[in-house]
Amino acid sequence: MPVEFLTDEQAEAYGAFREVPTRPELERFFFLDDDDRDLIALHRTDGHRLGMAMQICTVRYVGRFLGEGPLAVPWEVVEYLAGQLRIADASCVKRYGERRSTVYEHANEIQERFRYSGLHRPQVGPGVP
C-alpha cells in the first residue's frame, strides 16, 4: 500500500527553483570552476554555452535536471552565469531548447563528465562501477 509522504505543494516544488538563490548561494552553487569551463568551452554558440552552464549548476543546486526544462531558472541565475562566461546578451539562452535533443545531449555529457548517476544506478560505495 503506497504512502504519500509529501504534500502536493512539496511534490510540486521538488527538483525546481522555489525562489531566487541568495548571493551566497549563487557564489557557492553557480560559480563556474575550471572543470565546468572546460566542458562549456566545447560548445560553439553563446546560447549553448550558457545553457550548458545552467544545466551544470542547476544539478548542483537543485540536485537533478529540471523536469520542466533547463530554462525554468530565475533570470538572476542566467545573468550571473552569463557574466562569468562574458556573454553580453544573456537572452541568447532562449534559443537553447530549440533543438530538444541538444538539452538531453548536454545532460548526458554532464552526467558522464562529472560521474553523476541517478536512482536507476545505485552505488554502494566509493569506486563501485
Rank of each mutant, 00 (worst) to 15 (best):
S91W: 10
E109W: 14
V59E: 08
I40V: 13
D8E: 10
F29R: 03
R95H: 11
Q10L: 05
W75M: 01
N108K: 08
I87E: 14
L71T: 09
I56F: 00
L32F: 05
A88Y: 07
C57A: 07
S117N: 07
P2H: 06
E68Q: 09
R60C: 04
R100Q: 10
A88I: 04
A107R: 13
H106N: 11
F65Q: 08
R100W: 15
T58A: 13
F30P: 12
Y116T: 02
V78M: 11
S117W: 12
F30T: 05
I56V: 01
D36M: 07
L71S: 12
A88F: 05
P70E: 15
E25M: 01
L66Q: 06
Q111G: 10
R113W: 14
K94W: 10
V3G: 01
D35V: 02
E27D: 14
I87Y: 13
V20F: 00
A72R: 05
P126C: 03
A72F: 10
G67P: 13
F114G: 06
E79I: 08
T7M: 09
P122R: 04
Y61F: 15
R60K: 12
F17A: 02
Q123M: 08
R113Q: 11
R23K: 07
C92H: 05
Y116W: 15
P24A: 06
W75T: 01
D33Q: 04
G63H: 02
I40G: 03
Q84A: 03
Y14D: 07
D36V: 09
R99W: 14
Q123T: 12
V3E: 14
Y80M: 05
L26T: 05
L50P: 11
Q55W: 01
F65P: 14
V103D: 13
I110P: 15
A88W: 03
L71W: 10
E25N: 00
P70V: 04
